[in-house]
Write a protein that binds this DNA or RNA. Structure first.
Lengths: 208, 208
DNA sequence: GTCTATACCTTGATAGAC
DNA sequence: GTCTATCAAGGTATAGAC
């Protein structure tokens, strides 16, 4: 109902999505404040005035990038949670999805999400924060189950912060095409952070 | 030789240090780009022109905040390393110092250090990066010893990134005066990340 | 060492032609 | 839907009096 769906079957990016992608890329590289609307427009072969036909303000652009990023990673991790019955496999799958969202094709949006939230007005911050809290709840649930089974530290909030900190920091150092691919990275971090769950995985990696 | 050291024995902040502290505070709260030199001057009861007597440029201010922060945390962690002979105690002490620098009185400078490096010109980035690498080497050394003893994963670089990620992320969620003080936080994270070393500590915390 | 005043530039956003 | 032209505001930095 959204579009007549013409002849082209390729899910090409709409103009709006193109703009979001270009903006996210620049925001990640230079930061939100250092990136001018003129730069964004230029990257798309437009002039700055045209941007404001698609978006109400520069902040609007930032909010949409963040919301889209959060919705995408939430959807992906939720899927992983629902697809694995066993707890160790489930947490490992969730970590994989988190890292894939962070370091894969969505790198730009996710980095912006992590490091540009101070540029949001208080009103916009509240909106984005609500989505972030919903995402973190996903982790709290599964980690709570692990804690109930005595597999991890009982302070679930602390475990979640430690885990997400380790995962998110990878955006600062991970280089695609390096010696570690994303799946391997997830597995290594899993073993490091949840050694007592790792032993019950099918193929458990040695530590030393 | 630097100053005649008059009668006052109080190590009062020099004007330059006052400016650095005020700027760091604003940079942390609002970000470097969103903070104008006028604001910084106003916070000190000056006008913007006066700032440029003390600093060559706004970026100069940022660089000095970062360098000072890095030198301080390096000195502190180095001290911890040298004061503990046993490896588990040494790593725990280093984690304590890192968290204390990050979350204590130096919170402003350290947050700026973590989250504003993109605002540096390439030349300035290189200078700061050199100091950061020296700091990280401190960790690599001690972690390598732990790896040699088979106490941790052999991929020392990965362990270091995971550890520093978990520690640094605390700047995003830790609230002073909350249920965890800094020493306790360090100990809990140590147990979580280095369970095989934790068992050889005097008073080891239970996990579940 | 700090102030006032200001030069000069870039910014986000708007209006209206096409 | 994009362009040109333009505005008002706010940015960094400088000059020179005090």
């Amino acid at each position: 109902m959204k579009k007549p769906a013409a002849d082209d079957q390729v899910p090409a990016l709409s103009r709006k999505e193109e703009i979001l992608a270009a903006a996210a890329s620049l925001f990640r590289q230079q930061g939100f404040e250092r990136t001018s609307v003129r730069e964004i427009a230029q990257a798309l072969g437009m002039t700055s005035g045209s941007l404001f036909y698609h978006f109400a303000s520069k902040e609007d652009l930032l909010v949409m990038i963040m919301e889209e990023g959060l919705r995408a990673i939430t959807r992906s991790v939720q899927q992983a949670r629902d697809s694995e019955a066993q707890l160790p496999q489930r947490l490992l799958a969730m970590m994989r999805r988190h890292l894939a969202a962070l370091l894969g094709p969505r790198l730009d949006a996710m980095s912006v999400l992590l490091y540009e939230w101070r540029s949001l007005s208080p009103a916009a911050q509240a909106k984005v924060l609500a989505l972030r809290d919903a995402y973190e709840d996903l982790w709290t649930q599964s980690l709570q189950q692990a804690a109930d089974q005595g597999c991890i530290d009982a302070d679930v909030a602390l475990v979640r912060q430690t885990l997400l900190g380790a995962l998110n920091w990878s955006a600062q150092w991970y280089k695609p095409g390096g010696r570690l691919d994303i799946d391997t990275l997830a597995q290594r971090m899993f073993v490091m952070l949840f050694p007592r769950m790792a032993v019950s995985l099918p193929q458990s990696l040695a530590v030393a």
